[in-house]
């Protein structure tokens, strides 16, 4: 049996890395005594599979992981209340928000998720500057960024993956943006988007924006948009969704 767990990450714990979060989950799952399946071999690992890595420092309301349960022990598992039970084992700032059973044949989160919605709080920028930069970007045919890949500088056009970008509201000493950015074949990072704008809305390290992942989306071939929990629910009954 495979479970998909949704969780959020807020506050101080946002400074943990993707690897850190994986370890936090391994320990939390052991504490709940959930019969997690282990890999074979010399160094058996629990079979967990995480979605798109969240950059260290970003917060999220939409994180997911898939957990394989040991078929010999998991059959008569009582899933009611598991969301609350899991949250109790997570550190302050991380909360489980839902659990569903998914079909093992479903594509992994990495493969299935097509875009993410981001809330981006940019400091030291006024609304009109931000609006102008956004308008220019949306009107452009291409939006070039340079990034390092395997030690080589690569130039990419991220414009096709900017599905949405708008000023949401002014905030104290800055402005809040909402962006929907594509993840296939390779996810666009929020910092990459901001640095591609003219003028760039965030200089790395100096006025680091506060970033929140609001949603992850799975858009099917026929254009239907689901979140990773509801796409699972389409195939099986939800259990204890908070």
């Amino acid at each position: 049996m495979r479970l998909r767990i949704a969780f959020s990450k807020h506050g101080k714990i946002r400074f943990t890395s993707h690897r850190d979060v994986a370890r936090i989950w391994e320990r939390a799952l052991r504490r709940t005594k959930l019969p997690v399946a282990y890999s074979e071999g010399f160094t058996p690992r629990p079979k967990l599979s995480f979605g798109l890595a969240l950059s260290t420092g970003h917060e999220s309301e939409g994180e997911y992981l898939d957990v394989d349960l040991d078929p010999e022990q998991g059959a008569d598992l009582d899933l009611a209340g598991l969301t609350t039970h899991l949250s109790a084992q997570l550190p302050v700032g991380m909360t489980a928000t839902g659990v569903v059973v998914i079909d093992r044949r479903m594509p992994s989160l990495q493969q299935a998720v097509t875009s993410c919605t981001w809330q981006i709080d940019v400091r030291d920028v006024d609304e009109s500057t931000a609006q102008a930069a956004i308008d220019a970007a949306l009107a452009a045919d291409e939006l070039m960024i340079t990034r390092e890949r395997k030690g080589k500088e690569v130039t990419d056009d991220i414009r096709p993956l900017v599905f949405g970008l708008a000023v949401d509201q002014p905030i104290e000493n800055g402005v809040r943006l909402i962006a929907e950015l594509g993840t296939q074949p390779r996810a666009v990072r929020v910092t990459e988007l901001l640095s591609a704008l003219d003028p760039p809305l965030a200089e790395p390290l100096l006025n680091e924006p506060r970033v929140l992942r609001v949603h992850q989306w799975i858009t099917t071939d026929d254009g239907e948009r689901y979140d990773p929990m509801s796409v699972a629910a389409a195939a099986s009954a939800p259990v204890g969704v908070a």
């Binding site: 101080k12 714990i13 400074f15 943990t16 890395s17 850190d20 260290t56 420092g57 550190p91 302050v92 700032g93 390290l205 680091e208």
Partner: peptide
Amino acid sequence: LWPRLEPLLPQVQKPARYIGCED
């Protein structure tokens, strides 16, 4: 000091060194 430390953390290596939060 957290409100004054928090803006510094995106600028350093391994910011989780400074957050506490241990079980």
